[in-house]
Amino acid sequence: MQKVFFISDHHFGHKHIIDFETRPFANVEEMDMYMIKSWNSVVGKEDKVFHLGDFSFLNHEKTQAIVKQLNGYKHIILGNHDRGRTRSWWLDVGFDEVSEHPIIYKDFFFLTHEPMYMNKHMPFVNVHGHIHGQKYEGKNYFNVCVEHWDYKPLTFEQIRDSVVASEEQ
Protein backbone atom coordinates (compact mmCIF):
# COMPACT_ATOMS: atom_id res chain seq x y z
CA MET A 1 0.00 0.00 0.00
CA GLN A 2 1.31 3.43 -0.97
CA LYS A 3 2.32 5.73 1.88
CA VAL A 4 2.43 9.52 1.72
CA PHE A 5 5.37 11.36 3.27
CA PHE A 6 6.32 14.97 4.05
CA ILE A 7 9.73 16.62 4.58
CA SER A 8 11.49 19.92 3.91
CA ASP A 9 14.71 21.88 3.90
CA HIS A 10 17.34 19.34 2.97
CA HIS A 11 19.58 22.05 1.50
CA PHE A 12 21.56 19.43 -0.44
CA GLY A 13 25.03 20.79 -1.26
CA HIS A 14 24.76 23.76 1.14
CA LYS A 15 27.89 23.60 3.29
CA HIS A 16 26.98 26.61 5.45
CA ILE A 17 23.72 25.01 6.64
CA ILE A 18 25.86 22.63 8.73
CA ASP A 19 26.96 25.57 10.90
CA PHE A 20 23.75 27.61 10.60
CA GLU A 21 21.63 24.76 11.97
CA THR A 22 24.29 22.85 13.94
CA ARG A 23 23.88 19.79 11.76
CA PRO A 24 26.05 16.88 13.00
CA PHE A 25 28.15 16.42 9.87
CA ALA A 26 31.86 16.93 9.15
CA ASN A 27 31.20 18.12 5.59
CA VAL A 28 28.55 18.51 2.91
CA GLU A 29 29.30 15.16 1.27
CA GLU A 30 28.68 13.31 4.54
CA MET A 31 25.48 15.31 5.09
CA ASP A 32 24.13 14.63 1.60
CA MET A 33 24.87 10.90 1.78
CA TYR A 34 23.23 10.62 5.21
CA MET A 35 20.11 12.45 4.03
CA ILE A 36 19.73 10.22 0.96
CA LYS A 37 20.13 7.11 3.13
CA SER A 38 17.64 8.45 5.70
CA TRP A 39 15.04 9.21 3.00
CA ASN A 40 15.35 5.74 1.47
CA SER A 41 15.21 4.04 4.88
CA VAL A 42 11.51 4.98 5.17
CA VAL A 43 10.28 5.79 1.64
CA GLY A 44 9.56 2.92 -0.74
CA LYS A 45 9.65 3.02 -4.54
CA GLU A 46 5.83 3.30 -4.79
CA ASP A 47 5.36 5.90 -2.04
CA LYS A 48 4.67 9.61 -2.56
CA VAL A 49 6.72 12.38 -0.97
CA PHE A 50 5.74 16.03 -0.67
CA HIS A 51 8.95 18.01 -0.32
CA LEU A 52 8.04 21.39 1.17
CA GLY A 53 10.93 23.32 -0.28
CA ASP A 54 14.60 24.26 -0.15
CA PHE A 55 15.76 21.02 -1.69
CA SER A 56 19.16 21.69 -3.30
CA PHE A 57 21.87 24.31 -3.67
CA LEU A 58 23.63 22.19 -6.32
CA ASN A 59 23.71 22.57 -10.08
CA HIS A 60 21.38 20.73 -12.46
CA GLU A 61 23.55 17.64 -12.94
CA LYS A 62 24.29 17.11 -9.23
CA THR A 63 20.68 17.80 -8.18
CA GLN A 64 19.45 15.35 -10.79
CA ALA A 65 21.89 12.70 -9.49
CA ILE A 66 20.47 13.11 -5.96
CA VAL A 67 16.82 13.05 -7.05
CA LYS A 68 17.47 9.83 -9.01
CA GLN A 69 18.74 8.15 -5.83
CA LEU A 70 15.64 9.01 -3.79
CA ASN A 71 12.75 6.55 -3.62
CA GLY A 72 9.19 7.50 -4.39
CA TYR A 73 7.05 9.79 -6.48
CA LYS A 74 8.38 13.25 -5.63
CA HIS A 75 6.28 16.43 -5.48
CA ILE A 76 8.07 19.66 -4.56
CA ILE A 77 6.45 22.83 -3.28
CA LEU A 78 9.02 25.47 -4.09
CA GLY A 79 10.78 27.13 -1.17
CA ASN A 80 12.49 30.50 -1.06
CA HIS A 81 15.80 28.95 -2.20
CA ASP A 82 14.12 26.97 -5.01
CA ARG A 83 12.21 29.78 -6.69
CA GLY A 84 15.20 31.06 -8.65
CA ARG A 85 14.80 28.01 -10.88
CA THR A 86 11.90 27.33 -13.22
CA ARG A 87 9.23 24.65 -12.92
CA SER A 88 10.74 22.95 -15.97
CA TRP A 89 14.19 22.89 -14.29
CA TRP A 90 12.73 21.01 -11.30
CA LEU A 91 10.80 18.62 -13.54
CA ASP A 92 13.93 17.99 -15.59
CA VAL A 93 16.03 17.08 -12.52
CA GLY A 94 13.46 14.41 -11.70
CA PHE A 95 10.59 15.77 -9.63
CA ASP A 96 7.27 14.31 -10.76
CA GLU A 97 5.27 17.40 -9.80
CA VAL A 98 6.19 21.00 -9.01
CA SER A 99 3.96 23.46 -7.13
CA GLU A 100 4.69 27.15 -6.93
CA HIS A 101 1.87 27.71 -4.45
CA PRO A 102 0.55 26.04 -1.28
CA ILE A 103 -1.50 22.87 -1.54
CA ILE A 104 -4.55 21.92 0.52
CA TYR A 105 -4.21 18.23 1.42
CA LYS A 106 -7.19 16.16 2.58
CA ASP A 107 -9.28 19.34 3.02
CA PHE A 108 -7.54 20.07 6.33
CA PHE A 109 -3.76 20.42 5.93
CA PHE A 110 -2.17 23.46 4.27
CA LEU A 111 1.16 22.40 2.76
CA THR A 112 3.52 25.38 2.48
CA HIS A 113 7.20 26.18 2.60
CA GLU A 114 7.01 29.19 4.90
CA PRO A 115 4.61 28.98 7.86
CA MET A 116 1.40 30.86 7.14
CA TYR A 117 -0.73 32.87 9.50
CA MET A 118 -3.14 30.61 11.37
CA ASN A 119 -5.28 32.03 14.15
CA LYS A 120 -5.97 29.65 17.03
CA HIS A 121 -9.65 29.35 16.10
CA MET A 122 -8.96 28.00 12.61
CA PRO A 123 -9.64 24.26 12.38
CA PHE A 124 -6.77 23.67 9.93
CA VAL A 125 -3.14 22.61 10.31
CA ASN A 126 -0.25 24.20 8.43
CA VAL A 127 2.39 21.59 7.57
CA HIS A 128 5.46 23.65 6.70
CA GLY A 129 9.22 23.98 6.65
CA HIS A 130 11.50 27.02 6.39
CA ILE A 131 12.17 27.74 10.08
CA HIS A 132 14.49 24.73 10.58
CA GLY A 133 15.19 24.15 14.29
CA GLN A 134 12.46 26.49 15.51
CA LYS A 135 8.86 25.53 16.20
CA TYR A 136 5.69 27.54 16.34
CA GLU A 137 3.53 26.97 19.36
CA GLY A 138 0.04 25.60 19.03
CA LYS A 139 -1.86 22.85 17.34
CA ASN A 140 -2.14 24.71 14.03
CA TYR A 141 1.49 24.22 12.96
CA PHE A 142 3.57 21.17 12.12
CA ASN A 143 7.21 21.72 11.15
CA VAL A 144 8.64 19.02 8.86
CA CYS A 145 12.17 20.46 8.56
CA VAL A 146 14.77 17.70 8.48
CA GLU A 147 16.41 18.87 11.72
CA HIS A 148 13.37 17.78 13.75
CA TRP A 149 13.02 14.27 12.31
CA ASP A 150 16.54 12.82 11.91
CA TYR A 151 16.43 13.76 8.21
CA LYS A 152 13.64 11.22 7.54
CA PRO A 153 10.34 12.04 5.84
CA LEU A 154 7.26 11.65 8.05
CA THR A 155 4.17 9.72 7.03
CA PHE A 156 0.80 11.41 6.83
CA GLU A 157 -0.33 9.18 9.71
CA GLN A 158 2.55 10.36 11.93
CA ILE A 159 1.55 13.97 11.35
CA ARG A 160 -2.18 13.31 11.74
CA ASP A 161 -1.71 11.33 14.95
CA SER A 162 0.59 13.99 16.41
CA VAL A 163 -1.96 16.70 15.62
CA VAL A 164 -4.78 14.65 17.19
CA ALA A 165 -2.66 14.02 20.31
CA SER A 166 -1.89 17.73 20.71
CA GLU A 167 -5.61 18.57 20.45
CA GLU A 168 -6.41 16.10 23.23
CA GLN A 169 -3.99 17.78 25.66
Rank of each mutant, 00 (worst) to 15 (best):
F108C: 14
E114S: 15
F108A: 13
L111G: 01
L111R: 09
K106I: 06
S88W: 05
N119Y: 15
T86F: 03
L111E: 04
F108E: 11
D92T: 01
F108T: 15
M118K: 11
S99L: 11
R87A: 02
D96L: 06
K106R: 10
D107S: 09
S99Q: 09
D96A: 01
D92G: 00
D82T: 04
W90T: 07
T86S: 03
L111T: 06
T112I: 13
Y117N: 11
I104C: 14
M116F: 14
G94M: 03
E97T: 06
V98T: 04
W90R: 00
F110V: 15
D92V: 06
F110W: 15
L111H: 06
V98C: 01
M116E: 10
F95C: 07
R85Y: 04
K106A: 09
Y117C: 09
N119P: 09
N119L: 13
G84K: 04
Y117A: 11
P115W: 14
E100P: 08
T112G: 08
D96H: 06
N119K: 12
D92L: 05
T112V: 12
V93E: 03
Y105V: 11
M116Q: 14
D96Q: 02
K106L: 10
N119M: 12
R85I: 02
I103G: 08
W90D: 00
S99A: 02
I103Y: 11
